[in-house]
Design a protein around this nucleic acid. Structure first.
Lengths: 186, 186
DNA sequence: CGGCTATTTGAATATATACTCTAATTTGAA
DNA sequence: TTCAAATTAGAGTATATATTCAAATAGCCG
């Protein structure tokens, strides 16, 4: 892949893969559908990717990275910042958000590479929420911040899950309600 | 299916289908895996079911019905009753709960029969939570009870989703925390 | 028991899928 | 412009899948 043409084709293939995972799910994403959507023949696909799995994993990494738009500023975000960033991710990057939430299920069983990646990322995300919770309530025991963070992150995933089924579902309203309830419950 | 043998075989097939959907997902559930797990050959399967889809739909109905263990007593349950019933469903009927939550994703795209069924059931469930919320807070506008019910049900689904990935996840603790936060936020 | 029907068997069919291979075409640096 | 390497084309392979079918077996009712 040293020529411009190769790069463009690669981009179209990844774009098609992303959209297909978002709309059809991991198992509904086939070589044929990817190639059709990208306007490419199988020979071209396999010139640029070693396997279907490789293209999918590329998109999966992309989705996992996209959910955490500011990974460097660790330790300074408030809970509200984190929730707002998540809302922005889900509403502005619809396809990637769909990919992300689909991983939680499909990836949970079949592909162990995807499963490991998803689990590790989830734990990191919970830890970040727990740290923000701890900063807002220094008196709270670590066990409780951890538990509260886990509840909140899981609940947010539930909101996104609903959004996958119903595109009119208002993620922002429900995510903010969750946060406000969680803060009120302290 | 008028002989005892047929009924037993049918039972084993449905049991295998249920477990496979729960552990492998809808797409990972194949005729071969169902037949292997049930100790049956394809010919027997197709003697009792018209298609793979029919067996799956039977299990799907079963899961959707099981989530609402007391559909007759409408109008008397408290929010806490509903949440506790859900916790019981998830913890005591692990496989059916897994089937149920998997529908939300897999069913959301491919099979429109499953999708319609899931959506209708979800709305009914939200309505039941909203009614309970309204009973506890008669002064609250319908729009708000509806919105709060939708947040709570989605969040509960997120808890279950997490449980599918991590069987050690404590559904009861997190579900009760969600409810208590939601009540505190009023 | 006899006979009709349900049930089971296990191979056969048709289709979809991931992936390969060789020959043509295109690219861009020298 | 030339030419080696990158890219594309598109038919071909191997495997998995859902489903069918004719024949063999087993279950019930009289």
């Amino acid at each position: 892949m040293r020529y411009k043409a190769g790069l463009e084709t690669r981009g179209r293939i990844l774009e098609a893969t992303r959209r297909l995972i978002a709309t059809e799910g991991l198992d509904g994403t086939t070589i044929k559908s990817i190639c059709d959507q990208a306007g490419v023949l199988p020979g071209s696909f396999y010139n640029l990717f070693d396997s279907k799995e490789q293209a999918i994993l590329t998109v999966v990494r992309e989705a996992i990275d996209a959910i955490d738009p500011d990974p460097d500023h660790k330790g300074t975000d408030s809970l509200s910042d984190l929730v707002e960033a998540y809302i922005r991710f889900v509403t502005e990057q619809g396809d990637l958000a769909r990919v992300y939430i689909r991983l939680a299920l499909s990836g949970g069983t079949n592909n162990s590479e995807i499963k490991g990646r998803t689990m590790r990322h989830h734990q990191a995300r919970v830890a970040r929420f727990a740290a923000a919770m701890s900063r807002a309530h220094p008196e709270m025991p670590d066990l409780e911040t951890e538990r509260r963070a886990e509840t909140l992150v899981s609940a947010l995933n539930g909101i996104t899950l609903h959004r996958v089924m119903d595109p009119t579902f208002d993620v922002a309203v429900h995510a903010r309600a969750l946060l406000s309830d969680a803060l009120a419950g302290v």
